[in-house]
Write a protein that binds this DNA or RNA. Structure first.
Length: 272
DNA sequence: TCTTTATGGTGAG
DNA sequence: TCACCCTAAAGAT
């Protein structure tokens, strides 16, 4: 379930579990075998998250670059329940009585500092970066990227060069929260609208990191007392809710393609 | 025991 | 725009 919030949570957990100590590295599946032998037993210096990308930095060795893609998953196991990794497990990191098993990643490779920089330079601003609201630069970069595109704003929001870490759930939910129709041309958004989309992305993804899942509804809209008390099936306003009533106005939620993937919106709450 | 689906991304045509 | 990559769980038969 990887949008940016998942990746940043993994980085935080793996930093806590593994950074600053020697880490056993292996690849039961074998596709990362030679690379894992280079790193096995080295000290992990830091774990870095950038959009949907993860980097594991080691002393005097290339970094591991991981991208989960659609189906990639890290599972964490603790002593005394440390299972033998299955044959599909691409990467195992283990230290401190804790093991992380990686399956199904789109990317798991070694890369040198230049390649790390190359990946990061290809990304737009990350709403989960520390300076996302402190500095004016990220929102300016985001607004400028939108201003340069004729395609629908919903399509632009899936472009990792426009905003890094937003995926198919958050893009529809964020545009609902901002009252902006997903098929409006990206360049038609005003400076103020772009600023609101950015700020909403920051708040929503931060919340996702905090609670470990995507919850965008205001509790009051679904009769819950707190966001943590929102039932699983009521977490979202529009994603995958085609034909169901809007949680705010009751209008049937609409769906259609944007940027090659399905998007959802409320025809009454979102205009343009 | 199948088929489908998924919060992603790339490369070919 | 399409085929394809990777895995596992849920749904259909």
């Amino acid at each position: 379930m990887p949008e940016g919030h998942t990746i940043h949570r993994i980085a935080r957990a793996h930093r806590r579990h593994f950074a600053g100590r020697p880490v056993a590295v292996s690849s039961p599946q074998g596709r990362f075998g030679a690379e894992s032998r280079v790193l096995d037993g080295r000290v992990l210096e830091d774990v870095e998250a950038a959009g949907k990308h993860l980097f594991y930095h080691w002393a005097d060795a290339p970094s591991i670059h991981v991208h989960l893609g659609l189906i990639g998953k890290f599972r964490t196991h603790r002593e005394p329940d440390l299972p033998v990794p299955g044959p599909q497990t691409r990467l195992v990191l283990a230290a401190n009585g804790i093991a992380a098993h990686l399956t199904g990643p789109m990317t798991c490779r070694l890369c040198d500092p230049e390649e790390v920089t190359e990946v990061i330079d290809s990304l737009g601003p990350d709403p989960l970066a520390g300076d996302a609201l402190r500095s004016a630069r990220p929102v300016r970069r985001f607004a400028a990227a939108l201003a340069g595109r004729r395609l629908p704003v919903a399509a632009a929001m899936l472009d990792q060069g426009v905003i890094a870490g937003v995926g198919n759930v958050y893009r529809s939910e964020i545009l609902f929260l901002c009252g902006i129709h997903p098929l409006r041309p990206a360049a038609s958004l005003t400076e103020a609208e772009a600023g609101e989309v950015w700020a909403t992305a920051v708040h929503q993804l931060r919340h996702g990191v905090r609670v470990g899942r995507i919850v965008t509804v205001e509790p009051a809209d679904v009769g819950a007392r707190s966001r943590r008390a929102v039932p699983e099936e009521l977490r979202l306003y529009v994603y995958k809710r085609a034909g169901e009533p809007c949680r705010r106005c009751g209008t049937a939620i609409a769906a259609g393609p944007a940027g090659g993937r399905a998007a959802w919106w409320c025809p009454s709450c979102q205009h343009g």
